[in-house]
Design a binder for these strands. Structure first.
Lengths: 222, 222
DNA sequence: AAATATTTTTAAGTTAACTTAAAAATATTT
DNA sequence: AAATATTTTTAAGTTAACTTAAAAATATTT
């Protein structure tokens, strides 16, 4: 498979992301929105990606990735997330700082580099946001996780990930000490707005909005 | 200072390199040769770099870097060489493998990243080829070094660097166990072709051509 | 189903960074 | 100094990756 431009790589990642969340082809508009580009630019690029057989593209019908395209996208995600681990674990960046730099590092072309980095980091299975890191064969680790909002009063979960990656959200979680690995007990759910009162292991009591509990992923504790 | 494209950065590095070795402005041809491009492409780019005040450019007179340009070039060299140390020391790449990957990594834009990398690596002063790494202020460490060919019979030197960075040369040195830090004693110089017989600390005796001894940098031992 | 709104594509244009070919400037040889 | 060779620049063209504006296709509302 020939080498892709950074632009092409970004399109593949965007399409992968969109097709992953919604279970249908990625629309031109959705891609344009994801990449902050005009729909015309997307139409243009889709033709090129289609010519390279990286996407299945029928005009006005949206696109999906071909096997080759999906393989490349997965490798990009692997690279992105491994670099995030490096930035976080090795260079002590906080979880709200790693994305932007990894966005650049993911385009470095060297299989050797990424495999050695993986080994050096101890073949991590999750990145600093709890997102799974595909292995060299493109396999993602699976985990039985659910949104914190799905827990009932009295239930306990451990924070394992986030569904929203904005700096604002991540910094809010830092402030509240709601990082990965934290144990959370649901004390009370307020029906009115679905906000909840929760207890952390350090005995801190927090009230969090549904916006927060929707975007926090936990593993339910027995 | 605004952000430069990778192409622009490569031109600055090339001009820096040329002006450093020859003590005069870099010619269009020299730059074209360094970057494997046509002279016409260089003329084109020089106009753009000149407009950004990164080079002093008078048509047909060659170019030199402005202060801004030299500052940027130095930062690029710093990034390149720090990444080389990372690849070599942390990921165990050999010294003939690091250049190519560092060539990509040097374009990553993040001051924080490079400063933290520097700190993590222990603020190294030299890269895996013995080339000095400028500090955050752009200062290069100086060293009293000379070419191995300049040593007389009976003199002893320690290998501290190379003047030629080709894979072929570096792999040859590996074969001969002539890495950085190795102590070399000049046993005999053959006037005929300036080749020399040298003894290494492991008592190995080698005969090396003048092409080799010209390109090896040593620090003379008392 | 027709009218309207939305989405997508096409058409035309831009910019950076290249190319080849020709012209112009500079350097070297005689 | 004139002739010739070399270097550099300009001119014209290309490609990837974008833009805006208009046209076409599809989806939604009435």
């Amino acid at each position: 498979m020939e080498i892709l431009s950074q632009a092409e790589e970004n399109y593949l990642k965007a399409i992968f992301k969109i097709c992953e969340s919604e279970e249908k082809p990625a629309s031109t508009n959705a891609i344009a929105h994801e990449l902050a580009m005009t729909p015309a630019a997307v139409s243009d690029m889709l033709k090129r990606l289609s010519a390279k057989e990286l996407v299945h593209y029928k005009k006005h019908r949206g696109v999906t990735l071909t096997n080759d395209g999906a393989q490349l996208a997965t490798t990009l995600i692997r690279k992105h997330r491994l670099w995030e681990v490096f930035l976080s674990d090795v260079l002590d960046f906080s979880w709200d700082e790693v994305h932007e730099i990894a966005e650049q590092l993911e385009h470095i072309q060297s299989d050797q580099l990424i495999n050695r980095l993986d080994k050096f980091l101890g073949q991590p299975k999750f990145d600093p946001h709890g997102d799974p890191i595909p292995d060299a064969d493109g396999k993602f680790a699976k985990r039985k996780q659910l949104q914190l909002i799905a827990l009932e009063e009295g239930e306990v979960g451990i924070v394992v990930g986030v569904m929203e990656h904005s700096t604002a959200f991540l910094q809010y979680l830092d402030k509240m000490q709601l990082g990965l690995g934290v144990k959370v007990e649901v004390l009370e759910v307020y029906e009115f707005d679905n906000s909840m009162r929760v207890a952390l292991e350090n005995n801190q009591i927090l009230t969090i909005s549904s916006k927060v509990s929707e975007n926090l992923l936990v593993q339910k504790q027995a």
